[in-house]
Write a protein that binds this DNA or RNA. Structure first.
Lengths: 128, 128
DNA sequence: TTACTTGTCCCATTGTCGTAGTACAATACG
DNA sequence: CGTATTGTACTACGACAATGGGACAAGTAA
């Protein structure tokens, strides 16, 4: 379900957090979908249940997930962002893109290459 | 010279190692070029000298750098031999894209919107 | 030679990550 | 009701990352 690499020096909690956010962003997880239980996901990824629990808790704090004891953890609806003005939105996206472009460029990727990569993932998503 | 983010959960030594390798791979550092001294780079990046020293030592062990006491540390291999495999490159871009997609989405941007934004920048750039 | 620079090594300390195990709280269900 | 399931909380522990400080080794240069 999610992809984790224990050999990679990046902390597991961060890999998992990114993985979950990505799954939501690409539509693999939709609003209201239930995530695996803390214990089940820990078994699947071969990591500790506490690590999973901390990620779920963190994502709930930031409003991405919603958890209900005895029931499970679900993707939470997030209506808040729309409050921004169009100008704020544009500026926000521009800043994020600035950072991303700089990051990929220093690693030797061309903008064409990057866009093509994103586009191929969009196609994969819409194929679901 | 190199880019390090202390707030990022990835270990500093790993960020620095990757940063140096990319600088060589992209030609910013060439064979025989001298790198900053251990202490100087530590000051520049605001990290500890031991951390820098360990990275240099590790990169010497893997043949990327060559160090001479009292003189300095230099690029050893030809960039071509250091070039990342296609798989490494793909994986790297995938990680960066994962992060970017997740980040933009949590801020309420759709993937379509993001790609369109990048595309408009590409058009502007090629117009120059 | 002496002084300086550079990389190397060692120690103690701090904080984070992750594991392991246990216990508890809230909910669902028969 | 009782029981299972699920999330939460807590402690203890080991490993690693990083810091700070100091000392040493090898080379350069005056």
């Amino acid at each position: 379900m999610f992809h984790i690499d224990a050999k990679h020096p990046t902390p597991l909690y961060h890999q998992l957090e990114r993985s979950i956010k990505f799954a939501i962003a690409t539509g693999k997880l939709r609003i209201g979908d239930q995530l695996p239980t803390v214990r089940q996901l820990a078994v699947d990824l071969r990591i500790n249940a506490n690590t999973v629990a901390k990620v779920y808790a963190e994502l709930e704090r930031s409003g991405v997930l919603q958890t209900r004891r005895g029931v499970g953890t679900f993707v939470h609806e997030r209506p808040a962002e729309l409050a921004f003005s169009r100008r704020d939105r544009d500026r926000n996206l521009r800043e994020l893109a600035d950072h991303f472009i700089a990051e990929t460029h220093t690693r030797g990727f061309t903008l064409d290459e990057v866009i093509e990569h994103l586009d191929s993932r969009r196609r994969k998503r819409s194929a679901n």
